Amino acid sequence: KVTYHVPNEEFARKLYKKAVDANLNVEIRVENGQFIIHIE
């Protein structure tokens, strides 16, 4: 399980798409202006 803290929405979207394309379980949320992405 990996967690990324991404300040940039564009990068967060790319990361999310890559994980989904790889059939990984992804959860994304915004906290204090940062995008928190959990990948399992």
Rank of each mutant, 00 (worst) to 15 (best):
P7I: 14
E40Y: 15
H5A: 10
N25M: 12
V30P: 01
R13S: 05
N25H: 13
Y4Q: 04
K1Q: 09
L24E: 01
A19N: 02
V30H: 10
K17R: 08
L15T: 02
R29C: 08
Q34Y: 14
H38C: 11
A19Q: 03
V20I: 12
E10H: 06
N8I: 10
A12I: 09
K17A: 09
Y16D: 01
P7T: 15
T3M: 06
E27S: 14
K1I: 13
K17M: 09
A19C: 11
N25W: 13
F11L: 15
K14G: 04
Q34D: 05
V30I: 11
E10Q: 06
E9V: 08
L24H: 02
I37P: 00
V26I: 06
I39N: 00
P7A: 14
N32H: 09
F11G: 06
Q34L: 14
E10G: 05
A12Q: 02
N32S: 05
R13W: 15
K1M: 10
K14H: 09
E27L: 09
L15K: 03
Y16A: 06
I28W: 05
R13F: 12
H38P: 00
V6G: 12
E9R: 04
F11K: 06
G33R: 02
A19H: 04
N25S: 11
V30T: 05
V6Q: 02
I36G: 01
R13Q: 11
Q34M: 15
A22H: 08
I36D: 00
Y16G: 01
N8Q: 04
R13L: 14
V26R: 00
I39Q: 00
N23R: 08
P7N: 14
R29Q: 08
V6T: 15
I37Q: 00
I36N: 01
G33T: 02
E27T: 14
E40A: 10
E31D: 06
L24A: 02
T3E: 07
R29M: 09
N25K: 14
V26M: 02
Q34T: 12
N32E: 06
E10D: 10
L15R: 01
N8V: 05
Y16K: 02
A22G: 06
H38A: 11
F35I: 07
V26W: 03
K17W: 09
N23L: 10
N8F: 11
I39T: 01
N32V: 06
D21R: 09
P7L: 15
T3H: 07
R29T: 10
V6E: 03
K1F: 12
A12S: 01
E9T: 03
H38K: 09
V2Y: 12
K14S: 07
V20M: 11
N23K: 10
F35L: 06
N8R: 02
V20E: 05
N23M: 10
G33Q: 03
K17Y: 07
K18G: 07
A19V: 05
V2F: 12
A12G: 02
K18Q: 13
K18E: 12
F11T: 14
H5R: 13
I36K: 02
Y4N: 02
V6M: 09
V30M: 11
R13T: 07
A22I: 09
K1A: 12
N25G: 04
V2R: 10
V26C: 04
K17G: 04
D21S: 10
A19G: 04
I37G: 00
L24T: 01
P7Q: 14
D21C: 13
N23Y: 13
Y4C: 14
V26E: 00
D21K: 10
Y16S: 01
Y16F: 10
V6L: 10
H5G: 04
E27A: 07
I36F: 11
Q34N: 10
E27H: 10
N32C: 14
Y16W: 10
D21T: 07
N8A: 04
N25A: 10
F11Q: 14
E40H: 13
T3Y: 08
Y16T: 02
N25Y: 13
R29H: 11
I39M: 04
K14L: 12
V30Q: 10
I28M: 12
E31I: 11
N32R: 04
Q34I: 15
T3C: 15
V30A: 05
T3V: 11
K17T: 05
V6A: 11
K1T: 12
A12W: 11
E31H: 08
G33S: 03
E27K: 08
L24P: 00
H5T: 13
K17I: 10
E9Q: 04
Y16N: 01
E10F: 06
I36W: 09
E31P: 01
H38G: 02
H5C: 15
E10C: 15
Y16R: 02
D21A: 13
Y16E: 03
R29A: 05
E9P: 04
H5D: 03
V30D: 02
I36Q: 03
V6S: 10
V20Q: 12
Y4R: 01
V20P: 01
R13M: 14
N32M: 06
Q34A: 10
V6F: 13
V20L: 14
K14E: 15
F35C: 01
I28Q: 01
P7G: 13
F35D: 00
E40T: 13
G33E: 03
Q34E: 11
K18I: 13
V26S: 01
G33K: 02
I28V: 07
H38I: 15
I39L: 04
K14A: 13
A19S: 04
I36L: 06
I28Y: 04
F35P: 01
L15W: 06
V30L: 09
A22K: 08
E31W: 09
L15H: 03
H5M: 12
P7K: 15
A19M: 12
Q34G: 07
H5L: 13
V30E: 11
L24D: 00
E10A: 08
I28H: 00
